[in-house]
Write a protein that binds this DNA or RNA. Structure first.
Lengths: 321, 321
DNA sequence: TTGAAAGCGATACCAA
DNA sequence: TTGGTATCGCTTTCAA
């Protein structure tokens, strides 16, 4: 590269980085630029960050559980916002790698910041990451981790909203669907707990309803519905709600007449059901806000960990409850 | 690190990489391992790959358009399979960055392979990537790109299946939903074309139906349904099909009596509708196969580009058609 | 069995 | 205005 332009590697570096401390003549700049174009030269990020001692990479371990369209939009927005702040967002696939091993794999890349969704990170993990040069570690999940900033997304709130709503509508025997699918426990556990809290001390009952995401399983559950004696159910989310609604209706159980039904996530499909599905709308943090938090944390790595509750939940009342 | 264990950096490298060419005494190994643990030492991937001259990173530009749950599962499987072959999969968020700029950003990371979904890559881009050291470039999309391996996922097949099915069921005036959402054109265009091909020369007509993913838009379309005089519709996918089905039914149009309806993707929600939704099941390539293709390409970078059609489509006939 | 040293590519300082 | 050179952290060859 340097040879082709007939200049030194240093000069190449100056030109391509527009280094203002050094003045390079216009003809030289042109020669360098042309040579770069001709060779298809692209600088080597690893070499650069090795020399610089830091990178602009924000690493996000990709969640292993299938997660809805809301999350996808959130990620996209976040990437865009971080991109505007000149960070490079990289999603790291961590399927089949756990705990310490995963943390080490992340640390090897020496990202300037880590945004870890879910709960795969403990205080030791945070320490390893910080020692390896990460200037910010942010967790997105139900609980804060020592030493890391936390965006608290506690799905307990979601359950609480749903439970409260059903209780307010006069329901007293409330079922809560708990998906059997592995990996969803981090969400379903807190949601169930939220419903419990909503009716605590009222005499209303809460019944856990394990359910696999299959028609046959829903049919079996519906078949013993009357003996369960429930007058309402929080179906975990809109998709499970749709599954259960069809099964209940096939069984001749009126929704909401005999059993009220509420989902969560406010997906389009809920609006299209008959009856239209009541749901808990979940508000994820704005990508821009989160990007700013990351940027602040990177600029001031010594600042005390911030913990912010960012998961909003609100009932959207339609026809099914 | 080396100091703490009282050995040289070389020895540390030997121990942590289990270098078999060199014998290190057991006590030394222990000392090194303990020091590493105590310090939370993690090797520096950039330095390593700089020295080695290559990495094991497989880079996947993340698709910018919201894409369904099928794709998510495919990615997960692929990551797992590539992980088993000792590659590191990294999804690179490319929102708001285009063409050359994006290619350069990818090339900076010097990945050993690139898996590019969609159509953001041209022959020049491939050349830049290869010159920058990528041993394999694989595109996942509707058409092959010069110099790159191609997994041809031509959605024309999907439309063809749907069109053929509707024609075989005796329908002659076929509507095709084309989402207004930007970014979906890469899929909807070929699907529409596939329907056209299916009925070419038969006298059956194909009508393009632009539709936004909103209830109001669907209602407007349904309101003028009778004047369109269609007896069948391919609704792009199951979600649009659900949207349209509700709107048609609200308008008093019988499905499938007056208008047959078919979706695509074979989502659970289609099975739960009344009538149950006919659909085109799409079969993505298996992650394991793709991982093996990548591995082969990396091992033999000079091999001629392989192009393989990997998108299977089959009608699942239910009640709506 | 271990250590010293070269070198990967880019940057930044200092000298020319 | 430019070029030489040390440096980042790691691997690997060669020598001790």
């Amino acid at each position: 590269m340097a040879r082709l332009a007939g200049v030194s590697r240093a000069t190449v570096s100056y030109v391509l980085n527009n280094t203002s401390a050094v003045r390079i003549s216009e003809p030289t700049r042109r020669r360098v630029r042309e040579a770069a174009k001709e060779l298809g030269y692209v600088p080597h990020a690893a070499a650069r960050s090795l020399r610089a001692g830091h990178s602009r990479m924000v690493l996000m371990p990709a969640p292993t559980v299938p997660v809805g369209p809301l999350y996808g939009r959130f990620i996209n927005e976040l990437q865009w916002a971080l991109g505007r702040l000149d960070y490079t967002v990289v999603q790291y696939g961590t399927v089949g790698v756990h705990g310490d091993e995963a943390v080490r794999a992340w640390a090897e890349l020496r990202p300037v910041a880590i945004l870890a969704p879910g709960s795969g990170l403990d205080a030791r993990g945070v320490a390893v990451l910080r020692r390896s040069g990460a200037r910010a570690v942010v967790t997105l999940g139900p609980e804060a981790v020592e030493g890391a900033h936390a965006l608290l997304m506690d799905h307990e709130t979601v359950g609480h909203c749903a439970g409260r709503h059903l209780y307010d509508r006069g329901r007293r025997r409330i079922g809560v669907v708990v998906p059997r699918e592995p990996g969803l426990g981090v969400f379903s556990g807190p949601r169930l707990e939220g419903v419990r809290r909503a009716v605590r001390g009222t005499g209303a009952t809460v019944t856990e309803l394990p359910l696999a995401y299959e028609e046959a399983a829903a049919a079996r559950l519906a078949a013993r519905w009357r003996e369960l004696g429930l007058d309402a159910v929080f179906a975990y989310n809109d998709e499970y709600a749709m599954l259960l609604m069809r099964a209940l209706q096939d069984e001749g159980i009126a929704v909401p007449g005999e059993t009220a039904l509420i989902g969560a996530d406010d997906l389009m499909l809920g609006r299209l059901l008959r009856p239209r599905l009541s749901t808990v709308r979940i508000e994820l943090p704005s990508g821009r806000d989160l990007a700013e938090l990351v940027d602040r944390a990177v600029r001031d790595p010594a600042a005390p960990p911030e913990r912010r509750t960012v998961l909003g939940a609100a009932v959207v009342h339609r026809e099914s409850s």
